[in-house]
C-alpha cells in the first residue's frame, strides 16, 4: 500500500492508475488502458473541456447517519481532460449517474445537429456515433431541432458539411496549433454558434486549407470529409464495426515524448 502511495497513483473506479506529475486524469487513465468517454479531447492538442463527456466525480464520501444508514455524498464533478491527476484521489467514471448524464449529452448533440447516419460518409468511424453505441443510446429523447446548416463544397479536395458539427473546436485547434494557418474559427453565440472559414467569401475553397493539413484529419464527426473517398470501407469492416470505441483505450493516450 505504501508503495502505491509513494509512486504517483490515483484510483479510477477503485483501480489504481499510475500517473506522471502534470498529467490530467484522462491522460493517465487512457495510458493505463482505461477508457473515459470524450469527444473534444485529443491527445495531440491542448484540452478544451467543452464537451463534458469526460466528466468524472472526484472524492465522493460515504458517511454513516445516526440511525446506522450510510449516505453517499457525491464528490465534485470535473472534466477529466482538464483536471490534473493527484495522488490518492478517488475518481469515479463508470457509474450509473455519469453514464446517464453522458447519454443525455449525446442525445442533445444528436438532436441539435442533423445527424442522419445512414447517409453520412463518416458512419462507422464517427466518434459521436461510436460513443452513442457504447453508451447504448437507443433514441434521441428530445425533439429533433432540424437546424438549417450550410454545406460548403468549394474546396477541390474537402467537403465541409456543417450539419454534423458538434463545435468541439478540434479543427480550430489543429489549424492554429499545428498547421499555423488559422483556417477555422467559431462565430455567433448560443444556438447560432457555427464554424466559419478564414476567407472574405467565407468559403473553404478561398482559404489556404489543404487535405494534408492536420485540421483536415481530426474531425471526430462527418463535417470535414475528403472528397472521392466516401464509403471506401465496406459495412462491417469499419472502425466501430470491428471494435467498440472503448476497446483499446491506449489509442487515445498521449504519445510518449521521445527522450
Amino acid at each position: 500500500m505504501s508503495d502505491t502511495q509513494e509512486t504517483n497513483c490515483f484510483f479510477l473506479d477503485d483501480e489504481a492508475i499510475p500517473f506522471t506529475p502534470g498529467q490530467t486524469i484522462i491522460q493517465a487513465a487512457l495510458t493505463a488502458g482505461k477508457y473515459i468517454p470524450h469527444l473534444c479531447y485529443h491527445p495531440e492538442f491542448k484540452p478544451h473541456g467543452s464537451c463534458k463527456l469526460c466528466t468524472v466525480r472526484i472524492d465522493s464520501r460515504t458517511i454513516a447517519t445516526e440511525d446506522g444508514q450510510t449516505i453517499k455524498i457525491p464528490g465534485r464533478a470535473a472534466a477529466s481532460c482538464t483536471t490534473p491527476a493527484q495522488a490518492g484521489q478517488h475518481v469515479e467514471s463508470n457509474i450509473p449517474e455519469l453514464l446517464d448524464l453522458r447519454r443525455t449529452l449525446i442525445q442533445m448533440l444528436l438532436v441539435e445537429g442533423n445527424h442522419f447516419c445512414p447517409s453520412c460518409e463518416k458512419s462507422g468511424s464517427c466518434l459521436l456515433q461510436g460513443l452513442a453505441y457504447a453508451l447504448g443510446v437507443m433514441n434521441p429523447h428530445f425533439p429533433q431541432y432540424f437546424s438549417k446548416r450550410e454545406v460548403d463544397a468549394s474546396h477541390p479536395d474537402i467537403l465541409l458539411d456543417l450539419n454534423r458539427c458538434i463545435l468541439c473546436e478540434l479543427c480550430i485547434r489543429a489549424s492554429a496549433e499545428v498547421d499555423k494557418k488559422h483556417v477555422f474559427s467559431l462565430s455567433g453565440r448560443g444556438h447560432s454558434k457555427h464554424l466559419i472559414c478564414n476567407a472574405e467569401s467565407g468559403k473553404l475553397g478561398d482559404t489556404n486549407f489543404s487535405a494534408t493539413d492536420k485540421a483536415a484529419n481530426v474531425c471526430p464527426v462527418g463535417v470535414i470529409l475528403h472528397k472521392r473517398h466516401g464509403f471506401e470501407t465496406p459495412y462491417g469492416q469499419r472502425r466501430f464495426d470491428q471494435n467498440p470505441i472503448n476497446a483499446h483505450a491506449e489509442q487515445y493516450a498521449p504519445v510518449k515524448e521521445q527522450v
Binding site: 444528436l110 438532436v111 445527424h115 442522419f116 434521441p140
Partner: peptide, 18 residues
C-alpha cells in the same frame, strides 16, 4: 416500438425539412 432510423429521427424523408 419505433423501429429504424426514420421512426427515430425522421431519417431520409426528413431531409426535406430544411
Amino acid at each position: 416500438i419505433a423501429i429504424g432510423a426514420c421512426a427515430i429521427n425522421g431519417g431520409l424523408p426528413a431531409q426535406r425539412n430544411s
